[in-house]
């Protein structure tokens, strides 16, 4: 479960960085088209892998799916909070 959850947050982080404004605020440079595609593919791949590990290793699967969905919500909130702090710092 830990592998699945770690891959999930990594995937979501990559997907968030594939968005121009978040990337710019984090790294203070524009996002190139090639990099955008790479980060996006990596993000989707990690998220997909997270689901794969969940189905492969977690037991019982129905309860693990509920956990995965719960973590998905919390991770999105967490990443949004991190990006908002970074954006606020960059603004100041």
């Amino acid at each position: 479960m830990i592998i699945s959850i770690s891959l999930q947050i990594f995937g979501l982080l990559c997907l968030s960085l594939a968005m121009e404004k978040h990337f710019k605020a984090t790294f203070a440079r524009p996002l190139t088209q090639q990099l955008k595609l790479s980060v996006k593919v990596l993000g989707f791949f990690a998220t997909g892998l997270s689901v794969f590990f969940l189905l492969l290793l977690a037991h019982p699967i129905p309860i693990s799916i509920v956990k995965w969905m719960g973590f998905l919500s919390v991770h999105i909130l967490l990443i949004s909070l991190i990006h908002s702090r970074i954006a606020l710092k960059a603004k100041r």
């Binding site: 968030s16 968005m19 978040h22 999105i76 909130l77 949004s80 990006h83 908002s84 954006a87 606020l88």
Partner: peptide, 20 residues
């Protein structure tokens, strides 16, 4: 997505409401 503008109360609340 993944955006929560901190600062003005109404803007932050609107973003939080949509995100949540």
């Amino acid at each position: 997505f993944f955006t929560l503008r901190l600062g003005k109360l109404l803007t932050t609340l609107t973003d939080f409401h949509a995100l949540a």
